[in-house]
Amino acid sequence: MSKILVIAEHDAGQLKLATLSAMGFAQQVCAQTSGSYDVLILGEGISDAAESLRAYGAASVMVADSPALKEPLADKYAFVIDDVARAQKATMVVGAASTFSKDILPRAAALLDAGMISDVIEVRAEGDDFVFKRVLYAGNVIATVKLEGALKFLTVRPAAFAPPSKTDELSPATPVAVDAGKLPSQIKFVGREAKVAGRPDSTEARVVVSGGRAIKNGEDFERLIGGLADVLGGAVGSSRALVDSGITPNSLQVGQTGKVVAPELYIAAGISGAIQHMAGMKDTKVIVAINKDSEAPIFEVADYGLVADVYQAVPELIGKLKK
């Protein structure tokens, strides 16, 4: 019988949706093995986030709310996870595959002398044990693996597991006592640099609208690319050419030397499709290209292509989408 501990992830009290995928995974395993799962959330001022976790059938939502846990410092978080996992006699500790989990879970696994695998996309019970599938080499290889030991640490790919089904009955919220004095303090919090809030991050968004050399200045970029992204609820991206000419900031660049995005819809407006750019968006589900030059290589990868001037087509598109 599985006893799973899901580590919830949040950004200053704002629950990260990937947590639900980890819970979905837990629910799936529980269904196969008639086990149960708990959710552990750590931080300070997290009651709202904890509250929202109660509707998914967890045995309990454990809340480690302490000023000492305000910042997600790996040494402190791992220490608490270690405590809780021991007390709960957990057989699995699960997080979403994210930078947060990569930072914290291996440390907790080490404290508990447990094995860990990352990027799980499938799980199947086999007798008392489990067989996992995980991706390797940027998705080129899928490995089927078993993990030894009574306690297993895992991270799961959010896209591979649907959020858990909601239940009518709310899970009980139980506080976890944290003795701030006992927590290790080898890691110091120096500062946090947050992006200005607004559009979603291009690496997480389901829709990304990117602009290329055809865009002449920052205002046009905001009006055309930003405007289209906003009506679609998507993120904005840019080719290197626009970053070079100072029209867009470095943080928007998609490509070999920028961000790697994998949205469901990628609209490339005025982008010719150099390999350095394509390397950053190759995992997109649907590519739409708008370019004046019908010879542009981007049309060879696009699912939908529109040979048109960005300055003409995009405002029209925005107008139609607004209706």
Partner: peptide, 19 residues
């Protein structure tokens, strides 16, 4: 990015990491 390209050469036999 250069280190990434090397990793991709190893995993995908091309520097862009395409399958």
């Amino acid at each position: 990015t250069a280190a990434t390209a090397l990793r991709r050469m190893q995993s995908s036999a091309n520097p862009w990491g395409l399958p």
